[in-house]
Each structure stands twice: as C-alpha cells, then as structure tokens.
Simulated scan of single mutants.
Amino acid sequence: MQLHPTFSLTSLLDNDFYKFTMQQGVVKLFPGAKARYAFINRGKHVFPPGFSKALRESVNEMASLKLSREEKLFLQDNCPYLDPVYLDFLEGYRFNPEEVHIEQHGDQLEVHVEGLWYRTILWEVPLMALISELFYKLHHAVRLSDAEVIALTRKKIEGYVRLGVTVAEFGTRRRYAYDVHRLALKALKDHGQGAFIGSSNVHMAMLYQTKPIGTHAHEWFMFHAARYGFKMANAMGLQHWVEVFRGDLGIALSDTYTTEVFFKQFDKMYSKLFDGVRHDSGDALQFADKVINHYHSLGIDPKTKTIIFSDGLNYDKVARIAAYCQDKIGISFGIGTNLTNDVGPEPMNIVIKMTAAHPQDGEWTEVVKLSDEPGKHTGTEQAINLAKTILNIH
C-alpha cells in the first residue's frame, strides 16, 4: 500500500515546542532514564482494515527527518534558552522507528513506544498527528474546502480580536491534516493581528514567522514521581525546570496530581519565580478563583501573573473566561482542535501518555496522571489508587 506523500512528515520541527524544551531538560538531567508510552483511544474510534500497516509505513519514513541548517538558525534566533549543546544534539537526532510498536486487532489499534526518554519524548505528538490524518484519509472523509477553512478560521480569530484576548494555536496532535493546519495558520497570521501570538508547533511557527509557544507537559511531573515519589513530584519538577531554564519558560502546568495538591507545593518562591500557570482540566472559572486566591494568600498581586487556558476551548468558553477574569488576573488562551480540526468530520478523541518510567538508577515504575477531571486520569487502577492514598486525594 503506497501512501500519499503528505503522510510522511516533512520536518523534524513538526512537533509541539514543549517536547523540545523538555528534551533539553532530559538530556541535561536524566540522560540514562527510559520511558514507555501508550496510545489511548478515548473516543472508541473504529480503525479500518490496513490502518496499522499504513501507520507503520508513515512511522518508518520519519527516520529520514533531520534538523536543517535553516531550522537550527530559526531556533538560535528565536529561542535563546535552548543552549548550543542541545541544538547541536538536535542536529544529530534521528527518529528510530524501532522504538514504536504498532498492532491492529480487528478495528482496534495498539501503539506503544519504549526507549531512552531523551529519544522517545519526541514521538507522542507526530504519532497522534499521523494517526489522525490517516484515520480521515482511510475512512474517505470529506472536509470543508480550503476557502471555507480559511474563512471559518478568519471568523474565529476576528472574534478573538474583538474580545481583546491573546490566542496561541495548540492543535498539532489532533489536527485533521497537515494541509488544514497550514490553512489555519495562514488565516490566523493574516487576520489575527493583536490577538494571534504564536503556535505550539515549531515548524508552523517558522513557516508563518510567529513565536513557538510552550513549556512542559504532564510527563515531566509523571517522571519526577517515578524518580522521587508522588509527594516530591511537583516540587522537584518545578525545581529542575528552574535549574534548566533559569527563569525563562515560566508557565507551570498544575494538574498532573490535581490542582489542590499542586498549590500546596507551589509555595511563595515558586509562585514568584514562575510567570503563571496553565489550566488543562476541570472547571475553568473555579480554577481561576483558586489561582487568584492562592496568589492573594501569598501577598502576590494576581494581575502580575498569567493563566494560560488550554482545555477544549471554543469562542463561547473563551468569552466566558475572559469576562470572568477581567481586571483580576492576566489571561491567555491556547486553542487546539477547534482551530485545526473543525472542518466537518468529528474530531478524534485520542491521547498518547507516558505509562511507566525507569530512572537511570531505579526500576520500571508505573506513572499516573490525576487530572482535575476524573475522566482524564491515566494509569492503572492500582497505581491511581496508590497515588490518591499517598497524596490524600479523596
């Protein structure tokens, strides 16, 4: 089965920025650590015959991707916190398709990744993007025309301009297709002046001369639990982030083990060091109240801090959050699927999550995520219950 050329990614940087920033941290601090990841089909999607074979071919083609000279210069010019040693490393990095295990059982897909963490950390986002694009292609889905995609995206970003909010595009992992992603970016750049501030996708940021946006993901704190225990995971994760980036990239992700637990450990030092926090699950307005109250309790003016909202956003949610937070705290929005997969067919509900970590001097340890929304928990029931017990989560 020969795949259409657009199925193989064309750039090593066609990935979310936080994967590269975390990779720099892993290379520096945990070069011998290993990780396992698994695909989770939250939406119970049905995969057509031959899907695993098509995905395997796409993954194999990724072995030829490498950082170009132009891409390295873009990172040097726009991301001064990525140090020269790391950029030299990235120049020599190649995807190893043997780290990805793909099986299909009837209409269900299994994907697992295993290997050194500093290598395997880059697989999650492009794998999801490939699964999503192949899914629509092999189901012969029909989408809006290019002109309609541009017009719809223009309407959305002009709405955000009128709201007076800033918006970044976060939609790589569940995009309809690479071509749709580019159409959306073009419309955002052309019509979003004053509102559109950047993309989580480094390749797209380079193509459309905007800012790559991101800091770290749940896996950063999930690994720290495997290495240091659940009670120390947030504090050690934050401490190591500060050690690597020295004050840059200062938005902390707060819901790996629930926001309640996070804020017990996000003390005055971290609250001052970090520019703000990112919301990724649970009720957005309740979260805003928690954050504002937390800063007030420490004598910090919330207006000097920022919340990045990034949980399943659309215009109505953004408008409600913006009105609620006005004059209380700084806000910005990361919008994903609604910008890159709102073209007719139902967006996929899929994730790839770290399932286990092996610190260099440790052993394989199951990891979990305890979201503010129980439906987003990941991990085995036994490991989730253990984490809840240790962290006194009821």
Rank of each mutant, 00 (worst) to 15 (best):
V125Y: 11
A225F: 02
E98H: 13
P126R: 07
R42L: 13
D283S: 13
H181Q: 09
N201C: 09
S52K: 13
T365S: 11
F17A: 01
T166G: 11
H240F: 11
A322R: 11
T365V: 14
A322T: 14
P49W: 08
F262L: 04
H105T: 14
G312M: 11
S132L: 10
S68G: 08
A168T: 08
K231Y: 09
E61N: 14
G32Q: 03
G247M: 07
V261A: 04
N78K: 15
S58G: 03
A129R: 01
G299H: 05
L391K: 02
E243D: 12
K328W: 08
Y93R: 04
L163A: 01
E133R: 05
F17H: 01
E114W: 07
V318E: 00
L12S: 01
G164V: 10
L144G: 03
D146K: 12
G250A: 12
Q239N: 15
V277I: 08
L29N: 03
I251A: 00
R182D: 10
A235C: 10
L127A: 05
L87E: 00
A288M: 09
V367R: 00
G159C: 08
V291I: 14
D372Y: 02
S8C: 12
D107P: 12
L75Q: 01
A54K: 05
K155H: 15
M236W: 07
K369R: 15
N234F: 15
L163H: 03
T258V: 07
N60S: 14
T120Y: 05
K19G: 06
F89Q: 01
E103Q: 14
G25V: 00
E91I: 06
N96F: 09
R175Q: 10
H101V: 11
R173W: 10
I307H: 00
M62E: 01
K53V: 15
H140P: 12
N78Y: 08
A323G: 13
S68N: 05
C79P: 05
A357K: 00
G336A: 04
Y160L: 12
R69P: 13
F170Y: 15
